[in-house]
Design a protein around this nucleic acid. Sequence first.
DNA 1: GGGCACCCCTCCACCACAGACAGTC
DNA 2: GGGACTGTCTGTGGTGGAGGGGTGC
Length: 380
Amino acid sequence: MGKLCDFCGEQRSMVCCRSDAACLCLSCDRHVHSANALSKRHLRTLVCERCHYQPAVVRCIEENISLCQNCNWSGHASPASATAHKRQTVNCYSECPSAAEFSRIWSFFSVDQSSCDREAGSMILEDGDESLPELQLLPIDHCTEDAAMDSMASDIEQIHGSGSLNPLSPKACSPRIKHHESIHDTLYEDFDISDIELGMENCEAHIDEFLDDPQQYFENGGIDSLFETGNLCGAECNVECAHAAKGSSPQSETMQPACSNQLSTDSITSCKSDQNACMSRPGQSTLPPNNGDHPEYEGFSMVVMEEYPHYIPYPENQFLASRDGAVLRYKEKKKARQFDKKIRYASRKARADVRKRVKGRFVKAGEPYDYDPLEVTSTH
DNA sequence: GGGCACCCCTCCACCACAGACAGTC
DNA sequence: GGGACTGTCTGTGGTGGAGGGGTGC
């Protein structure tokens, strides 16, 4: 049983939206991302079926599961499995694809409407789609009635109207299908450290992909897809670090040169492309210990402390998984942020409220003043 | 469309001093 | 180790000025 939908909390989450930092069932995905034009542009993909947190980037044909970058790396770390297991890239999608388009986007999935158990992620469409029957996405080898699938898919096509895309036409579907490594617009939507992973494990994944299926690898954009986001994010990181350097404290100046100002969580998280430089690893923390004196480190001390029991095999992966926890905490903290002025010392406020002033400035006791809060009309 | 003046708005330094805080004896 | 003492730093609010954006000519 995977993670429950972040929206309804009832169905098992099937897709992951990076922009919303949420894992949703198909029904809620459709509901949430049909709300407005902006939400329709959110790029979504399958949820990793191993860690149930990260967006899946590859489909292991042998194991018949979708995996995120980390789980792919950990699961195929051994040379035997790396070469024996064929993997397929999991594409992202936007807008609200029809069932047939889903099966087009993810060729390893097909659509089931009736027979499969609800737990597998059933979808109850709402509002304008109430006429749609429940549908499910299932691994294609779980479905036995292909003809029925095709029939159902075409039915859904009709329900969606003339604007729906022909699943047999790659041209028609292509605008919605975006290669996973070339997500650019999400960079500006909201912070998400996990948006881009440009560490060595990412390179290894590319190499593995190339070794497994060179043709498909180049069709997917090959090594260029790696540099697309890499260049952009590298520049962005530099800009952010330069920004942070303006307000750097002496404490932060002692840190590593690359993205050295980790004091601000914003600056930390903005260096999303360079996790090696910006995020601490267990035993290699570049952040001071959180002993209570630095509440701004609160979330990041947990980077080291938090652990995912099902997700331990390599220190690298442990680090990356805990990073997700830090991201979630950051987002929650961001939501709870209060920009209203907060009085830390009431006594000082009480003193300032009764202090005499000249043109708004405090004056020494006994000196002439033009404003007395206790005697507003006085002019001395 | 570019240049200029004007208005409006936002942001920030300024001030004194009580209290917090760190260091020393 | 704990108290007393000393020096330094912080934060509090109203005001004016600087600077940026918008508008009209």
